[in-house]
Design a protein around this nucleic acid. Structure first.
Lengths: 184, 184
DNA sequence: TTCTGTCAATACGCTCCCGTATGGTTGACC
DNA sequence: GGTCAACCATACGGGAGCGTATTGACAGAA
């Protein structure tokens, strides 16, 4: 019975995440999204009470699939060193538009808690990963900080230089650099 | 004769940079700034043709004092290793709200060229610095990339965790970590 | 077939911001 | 003390979003 409801709600959330990726939190706006979806606000306010409810739902979706999903898939790899390489490849290659958009809105009351949880979770995971690879705990925490920072920053620098996504060769060199730098 | 003109113009630019720091590019808005300055739009549109003209002027100011100013001051320090430490201290301690706001608006037509120039300039400077400290050129470029990325990212992570600015001790540990990591 | 719940369109008022037009104020200088 | 330019206030029209209220379409159950 609530089949079609859920479907349509999901379409709004999907569109919200798209808009978030290329226009930031401010682009998660009812009327523009309605236009993009080929409907009017009349639809939106049936599925959601608020603009903020949509944003919250989208962030929830993002949190579930993005962080936890990735970590679970990584945990299937046995060798920690290999896991780091995999992580680097996945993360460096990935599109971080949404993540960056959220960081840009770190003060937003709806965004802040999600971003905080996600960041903490990832840092903790990375530190554990480095520790398993032989780095002592305290050092691992600091390096996880540095490493995740580098990850975030690299994307932003690339955007600032509006560099095209790195070639396979550049990616390999960078991953090697990261492994050499952070795992020794 | 155009004394008072320039002064008032500067006040607008100053306010624009403040607004940029804590509200992003979107917050560089005429009417809110006018309110904050205790005047009305009537004033603004005498000094500037456009909202965009204000933004451009503010970015110009930022580019001049921020990047070139910092580099010139750093160049007075002789020892490269010392320069890196100084850079780390200055940069890690600094408030990067404006820089982050600009990265968040990397697609904005007025922001993009400024951000691009600044980023390139800083990367180039950092690479030269690492090179002078004994790192071979190609490696220096990659590490400069990583290092500047880490710089950007550390700030964002701190914001995401809404951590207070790091204590003196933490700052020291981090700087040591950075020197150890990137200079060997 | 009628009724009911689900979903969407239309129309409205509100707020915030932009940019323009126009008139006032002030101060320097003759 | 009148003039002119610099500077600012007031008042307007317009666009983009938000959220509400009301009505309409349509499908499935009774």
């Amino acid at each position: 019975m609530p089949q079609k409801t859920r479907l349509s709600r999901e379409r709004w959330i999907e569109a919200a995440l798209d808009a978030l990726a290329d226009g930031g939190v401010a682009a998660v706006a009812v009327e523009p999204l309605a236009t993009r979806l080929g409907v009017t606000k009349g639809s939106f306010y049936w599925h959601f009470h608020d603009r903020d409810e949509l944003l919250a739902a989208a962030l929830d979706e993002w949190e579930q699939t993005g962080t936890e999903g990735l970590i679970e898939r990584l945990d299937e790899i046995a060798d920690p060193r290999e896991r780091l390489a995999k992580w680097a490849r996945r993360v460096l290659g990935a599109d971080k538009a949404q993540l960056t958009a959220l960081h840009a809105a770190a003060d937003h009351p709806t965004v802040a808690p999600v971003l905080r949880r996600t960041t903490e979770r990832r840092l903790q995971y990375l530190a554990a990963l480095l520790h398993e690879a032989g780095v002592p705990p305290a050092t691992a925490r600091r390096r996880a900080h540095l490493l995740y920072s580098a990850d975030l920053g690299l994307y932003q620098i690339a955007r600032a230089l509006d560099a095209q996504s790195p070639t396979e060769r550049e990616l390999r060199a960078l991953i090697r650099e990261i492994c050499d730098t952070f795992l020794r």
